[in-house]
Design a protein around this nucleic acid. Structure first.
Lengths: 241, 241
DNA sequence: CTCGATTTTTGAATCTGGTTCAAAATTCGC
DNA sequence: GCGAATTTTGAACCAGATTCAAAAATCGAG
């Protein structure tokens, strides 16, 4: 029975339509002014139909964050396919993340909200499951790089699981995003480009892991060169920073 | 004219009362169910009076987060006064942070929400200024430790400002909190105690900074011993983890 | 101490925007 | 082509934040 399938596809399409409209409205009027009625209106559907797809506004927000995150997975995959020394590939993951933030400037703010107790807790369990699931490939890719590094003798786990080691760079990256995105925090200390700084700190951390080949993080030019190189070799079709 | 001053004090007292009630209600019913009317009721004041103090619910949330943060400053100060090698003192900052999370488990969730575009943006500029200001002493303390480390020859800045170097550990700590506090994320990867892991990664990072004396992060027992030691010497009156 | 002016408090009324659900429209199988 | 089942609709509902005119308290001069 093809009817069922067509229906399925229609529903998926409409969900996409709604999410797109929501994204647009956020870009236009800010997260603050996002209204369910507006989303429905923009798509020429009744609010009731919108609620057929998303159990609540919170549900929609989590769905939107999840949808955005798909694009990040794509970027990570590119790094995964990149033939390069394992340490470069790990830095590549960080560059991919930066790329993503640049490409989707609204994402982090949205994600920050979506993972808030209030929103996360009010979304449907199914939606939460999907959101968590959408992040899984990222973890797998990172683990893969770490495992390869161990295999090649570039890195020693020294009692950690790959995921546990990966938590370090991951936390540092997320933390930097958090700091950057709180309006006004960076203005007070006179800090240069925070993401350039992140790259340097990541190099320090990887050195601390004794991830070969070691790299001089104080050589700003070299750090920049490495970042550029990754941009060129992995993301040459996308505007590079 | 003492009248003005008394009034001033009364207002401050009442503000404290309101914040206390809010905190209590959050503990009781969760952030999700916090209602302005309930806060006022609990204090035997009219809602209008509550709005005399806080321009909006968002304003109150930021105020509450700011108020909580005061306690963190206290913990950091203790570390600042602790006579110990600079590297130990830097780790002490991280331990203080952990202590704080343990002491005020609700704080991070609240702060996460408060720094969200929606809440942060809707709070009054004055309130935001106060919030930012309340974090300043933390930065100063960290900078101080880093500067002392440089003076003593334990650490080389290599072109960074103290604040910039401090951003690394800071980001890693915040990032770890973020990851820990998203319900369900840690369950999927089988990760051990994430905060123990944080300590280890911080040791790695400080090693990467070449902060003397270097420390073997793979020696779990030594890491734990160091953490315990800090707890004992700095926070011996508070329950230690 | 008294009285009018000023400030503060009050809480019912208002307003906003998310959510529901009975009726209308559409689709489906026969 | 027809009645049953499904989907869509949007006006009504509702929760809860916010307002503001009236009431109460405080103040300060005479």
């Amino acid at each position: 029975m093809g009817t069922r399938e067509r229906r399925q596809r229609q529903v998926a399409e409409r969900e996409h339509l709604f999410l797109g409209a929501a994204r647009e409205l956020i870009r236009q009027d800010g997260l603050l002014n996002l209204q369910m009625a507006r989303i429905a209106e923009k798509c020429d559907y009744a609010v009731g139909t919108l609620y057929q797809h998303f159990g609540s506004k919170e549900d929609l927000l989590v769905a939107l964050a999840t949808d955005n995150a798909q694009h990040r997975v794509e970027l990570f995959r590119r790094v995964d396919e990149w033939k390069a020394p394992t340490r470069d590939r790990m830095m590549g993951i960080a560059v991919a993340d930066l790329m993503f933030v640049q490409l989707y400037p609204e994402h982090f703010r949205l994600a920050q909200l979506a993972f808030t107790e209030i929103v996360w807790g009010a979304a449907s369990p199914e939606r939460r499951r999907l959101a968590l699931e959408s992040g899984e490939p990222l973890g797998r890719i990172c683990d893969g790089i770490i495992e390869e590094a161990v295999r090649r003798g570039d890195l020693k786990l020294r009692g950690l699981k790959p995921t546990e080691l990966g938590l370090g760079p991951w936390a540092m990256t997320i933390g930097t995003h958090s700091i950057v995105h709180v309006e006004g925090i960076l203005e007070q200390g006179q800090i240069g480009d925070p993401y350039r700084l992140l790259m340097r700190h990541l190099h320090c951390l990887l050195n601390g892991f004794d991830w070969q080949p070691l790299f001089d993080p104080a050589d700003d030019a070299a750090v920049d060169r490495k970042t550029k190189q990754i941009c060129n070799e992995v993301f040459n079709d996308i505007a590079c920073n």
